[in-house]
Amino acid sequence: MSSQSSPKSPRIDGRRLRSERTKQLIIEAFLALVREDPKVPTAVQIAGRAGYSVRSIFERFPDLNALRVAAADYALAQAAALAPARHVDGDRQTRLRSQVDTRAHTCERGVALWRVLMDSQEESDELKARVRRAREVTMARLELMYKPELSVLPTDERRDLLVALEALTDIESWARMREQHGLPFEEASDVWVFAIDRLLPPTPANG
């Protein structure tokens, strides 16, 4: 008997690929519905948008919470891919504009899902973890982009300033500027640039 294992059946591989594609389309349908109405959509609504049966959803996700978690992971990965750090070594104004522009576009795309996560996180430790991870990613980006200015501060002050900057550039902060105050995208971005610039200490001569 040959010691080599037999190759996988093309039928099995094709079935797996179709299943993964169906899973992705269900996630995309969930996200599309959330963007239209920031409430957790029903299984019937998701199935209708995706073009599959309700049974297809629960064949791939044990419950709607698992689908929310998968959608959060998908959106976080997509946000990371669409928002690489740029101009990290630029001058102060270049870094300010770059960081704010990247963050503003991330918030513009993600506010609807963020509200669903915030409303649902008390029901799920997994969703709480995704919310926490998203904030940690934002903090890490702020620390990277404003490293020269933060480097002049004592540890405690640096931490406090990062906390303040993360709160300032929270998704809901962006949504309030856009929705409640009616600011156009560029004007809202200018508000963030102005506020961050005021909060940061002077840039060191070698920064």
Rank of each mutant, 00 (worst) to 15 (best):
L144R: 15
L25P: 01
A112P: 05
R132I: 10
L142I: 13
E172V: 11
L200A: 04
P7Y: 10
E172N: 04
D170C: 12
Q78I: 00
Q121N: 05
V100Y: 07
S151Y: 04
W174L: 00
Q4F: 11
L200Q: 07
E149P: 11
M139G: 12
V131E: 06
V54P: 10
P84I: 13
E108A: 12
R141V: 12
D37L: 14
A85F: 07
M139Q: 15
S124P: 13
I196P: 02
V69S: 02
Q45K: 10
F185Q: 05
F61W: 06
E143R: 15
T169E: 03
F61I: 05
S189W: 02
E149H: 09
D101H: 15
A50H: 09
A71K: 02
R55P: 04
A32T: 12
P202S: 07
A85G: 08
Q24N: 10
S19A: 15
L64G: 09
L144Y: 01
L117S: 02
T203F: 03
G90E: 05
L153K: 03
M145N: 04
E20L: 11
S5V: 11
K8V: 13
A164G: 00
D101W: 07
T203A: 06
E143C: 06
A70L: 03
A70C: 04
I12Q: 13
C107N: 03
E179Q: 12
A47V: 11
Q93V: 02
L96R: 10
L67P: 00
I26D: 09
G110F: 00
L127E: 02
D89C: 05
V163I: 14
S98D: 09
R130A: 01
L144N: 08
R176D: 09
L127F: 01
R178P: 05
A32E: 13
S56W: 04
M177G: 14
F58S: 09
F61Q: 06
R135Q: 09
I12S: 08
A47N: 10
K147Y: 05
L142V: 13
M118R: 10
R86N: 12
A83P: 00
D197F: 04
R198D: 09
F185P: 01
V34D: 05
D91L: 07
P202R: 13
A129R: 14
Y146H: 15
A75T: 08
S120E: 12
P204A: 06
A175N: 05
V191E: 12
G207L: 05
S9M: 11
R97M: 08
T138G: 14
A32V: 12
V152C: 14
E122W: 14
Q78S: 14
R95V: 01
Q93H: 13
A195V: 10
P38H: 14
Q45E: 13
A112Y: 11
Q121H: 09
S6N: 10
D73S: 11
D160Y: 07
V88W: 01
P184V: 03
I27N: 00
E143P: 01
H105A: 15
R35P: 01
T106A: 15
A79C: 04
R115N: 11
T102N: 14
M177Y: 05
G90M: 01
R178I: 01
L113M: 12
Q45D: 07
A85T: 14
T138Y: 01
T138A: 14
R132G: 11
S189V: 03
G14K: 03
L117Y: 02
G90V: 02
D160T: 04
V44Q: 13
P154S: 07
R103G: 04
G90Y: 04
S3W: 08
